[in-house]
Amino acid sequence: MSGSRIAVIAAAGAFSAAAAFGADEIASYEVEGRRSGFLYMTEETRALQEDAFLNPGMFAVEEGEALWNLVEGDEGESCASCHEDAAETMRGVAARYPVFDEKRGGLVNLELRINEMRTSYMGAEPYPYESDELLALTTYVANQSRGVPMAVEIDGPAAPFFEQGRTFYETRRGQLDLACGHCHDRHPGDMLRGDVLSEGHVNGFPIFRMLWSSMGSRHRMFEWCNTSLRAEPYPLGSEEYLALELYVAWRGRGLPIETPAVRR
């Protein structure tokens, strides 16, 4: 891994990585009193996130860029052959997701949209949820929206899903019998054992989480919080987590996309 990293930096990578972290791309980590998880991290972790050369999530961005350009499937297409320069065509997309999708009659998030591109347009197999490939491509696409404020649509056909997500968020569950807000609304900034609780926002995802030593999606985080409460989780990509994702993205409205964030 570190070998290819060095190679990329030695080649053209140095310039593009620096460009992805333009100094003023993230104007503020706090919007109308809502504070990104970034502000609950230590100085060291923040510095790691903001340094494009040290941020371990940049491996995923680079891997995602390679997948973006890779021709796969029966149609002989790559993402790039239709969407060309991601910096232009994907800018702002991640900030709007998840969205209501007419064809499905339900919500779709960035991961599922990318997989749909593979199955419907490329004649390729979908990536398994939480596979390195899907995480990398999602990270690459979301990274194009760095600094763009999250703004999901919650009216119209999305409204019932939004309400379903709100109910999920507010429902006590598991042997510990806690709802999301018991930790993330009432106790941000307080220590939960060795962790400083944050407000539980999703603007940094996919994140590099040190505890996992890997990238993780929004749904993996929901699964982790659920099982920490000794509650039965839902499958990643499930309708329940999509609804929760919509509600949680709205809760963090205005916060800038900061993918790939680094978290403890």
Partner: peptide, 11 residues
């Protein structure tokens, strides 16, 4: 209790 993990159910 709601949706308790199987191995903790009723415990």
């Amino acid at each position: 209790l709601y949706r308790v993990l199987d191995r903790f159910e009723n415990k």
